[in-house]
C-alpha cells in the first residue's frame, strides 16, 4: 500500500484524449465568460486548470458537466461529440464533481452522503426498497461495502455516522471527495479541493488525489490556486485569463511562459 508511486510521462504520451474541448465560447448576456478555448484531457492524467480570479475556470467545469451549455464549440467525451446534456446524464456517463463551496447534504450523515454517490448503481425499484429484505438488502450491503472501502481510503471511519453539518471544513471537503469517488467516475472534476485548508489538510488531500489517480485509475481535472500543489500534482496545466487560454503544457513549461508570469505577477509599465 505504501510503495512509492512511479511518476509517469503522460505529457509526452500520445494516448487518445478522454475528453476534448474544442473552441468553446460561453457568454452570459454581454459578459464573455469563456472565449474560444480548446484543450484536452488524456486518460489517466491529472490536468490542472489555473488562472486568476474570474478567468472562467469554474465556468469551464460547469460546461464539462452540463450545468452550462456553451453557445459555440463542442465537447467530445469518450469519442462522442455531445449535444446539450443535463448534469445527471453527465453523471451517468461517469463524470463526477466536487464544488468550490462544499455542496454536501447537510441533514444526512457522512455515510448517507457517500451512499448517495452510489445512487446510479441501484437497480432495485421502489417496491423492493419498501420491502427492504431480499434482493434490495443484498444490493444495499453491496453498496455499503463499496462505500466502506472509500471511508477506509479517506480515513474517515470515526465520523461515519455524524451529520456532515457538524464536521470541520476540511473533513467536509474530504466527505465530498468520497461522495464523488463513490460514483466510480472515469473523469473527476475537482473545484478548488484545497481552498481554505491548512498545510496538513492540504498534504492529506494531495495524497488522496494522487491515490485516486494512480490506484483507482481516475482521470482528474482540478482547479487550484496553490501553485505548489498544482506544479507537484498535475501532469499538464492549462492556464486561462479573462476567458481565454494563454498557455497549455507541462508544469515546467507553463512556469516559464511569459504570458503566465504576466497574468499572475503583472507587467511593468
Amino acid at each position: 500500500m505504501n510503495a512509492p508511486i512511479p511518476r509517469r510521462d503522460i505529457a509526452s504520451s500520445t494516448s487518445a484524449p478522454l475528453l476534448s474541448v474544442d473552441n468553446i465560447s460561453l457568454a452570459f448576456g454581454g459578459v464573455k465568460a469563456i472565449t474560444d478555448v480548446s484543450f484536452d484531457i488524456r486518460k489517466g492524467e491529472i490536468r490542472a486548470i489555473i488562472g486568476p480570479n474570474g478567468a472562467g475556470k469554474t465556468s469551464m467545469l460547469n460546461c464539462i458537466n452540463g450545468f452550462y451549455h456553451p453557445q459555440a464549440g463542442s465537447i467530445t467525451y469518450k469519442g462522442n461529440k455531445r449535444e446539450r446534456m443535463r448534469p445527471h446524464v453527465a453523471a451517468a456517463q461517469g463524470i463526477a464533481r466536487t464544488f468550490q463551496n462544499v455542496a454536501l447534504f447537510k441533514g444526512m450523515s457522512t455515510l448517507d452522503n457517500i451512499l448517495t454517490g452510489r445512487s446510479l448503481k441501484v437497480r432495485r425499484g421502489l417496491l423492493w426498497q419498501a420491502i427492504w429484505f431480499g434482493p434490495a438488502l443484498a444490493e444495499q450491503i453491496e453498496n455499503r461495502i463499496a462505500v466502506e472501502r472509500i471511508i477506509d481510503f479517506l480515513e474517515i471511519e470515526s465520523i461515519r455516522k455524524i451529520p456532515v453539518g457538524k464536521l470541520s471544513y476540511g473533513l467536509q471537503k474530504r466527505v465530498e471527495l468520497g461522495r464523488a469517488l463513490a460514483m466510480e467516475p472515469d473523469l473527476l472534476l475537482l473545484d478548488e479541493p484545497m481552498a481554505g485548508m491548512n498545510t496538513e489538510e492540504k498534504e492529506d488531500m494531495c495524497r488522496f488525489i494522487l491515490d485516486a489517480n494512480r490506484r483507482l485509475g481516475t482521470t482528474i481535472a482540478l482547479i487550484e490556486h496553490d501553485m505548489g500543489v498544482v506544479m507537484d500534482l498535475s501532469d499538464r496545466v492549462v492556464v486561462l485569463e479573462y476567458g481565454r487560454k494563454i498557455a497549455d503544457g507541462t508544469p515546467a513549461e507553463v512556469k516559464r511562459n511569459e504570458k503566465v508570469i504576466a497574468a499572475y505577477l503583472g507587467v511593468p509599465h
Binding site: R86, P87, H88, A91, A96, R97, F99, L104, S119, L120
Partner: peptide, 10 residues
C-alpha cells in the same frame, strides 16, 4: 438539502 449537488451525482 441541495438539488444541484443531487443532480451532479446522477
Amino acid at each position: 438539502d441541495m438539488d444541484l449537488a443531487a443532480e451532479i451525482i446522477g
